[in-house]
Amino acid sequence: MAEMKRFECLRCDHRYMAEYDRKVTVERTCPSCGSNSVKLESKKPAKKPAGNTNTASAKG
């Protein structure tokens, strides 16, 4: 069953809602920058990502 989930673009950091069905793998494209590096947003990152603090802030 498809449900709405939050996705984050690993290229431009844009966050958006889209349909998600665990059983179906679909090609995803960031609506903001067109990248395919789109990751299902996890509820809580286990650890704070190391090193870089210079990433662009989330837009969406």
Binding site: S35, S37, K47
Partner: peptide
């Protein structure tokens, strides 16, 4: 490929490595 990259992203996040360092493009 996509499923595998998603798996690596998730593992990177768990380990504290920024997932954005692995990019995917069609």
């Amino acid at each position: 490929t996509q499923k595998r990259v998603e798996k690596v992203w998730s593992r990177m996040e768990k380990l504290g490595i920024r997932p954005g360092r692995l990019q995917l493009e069609w």
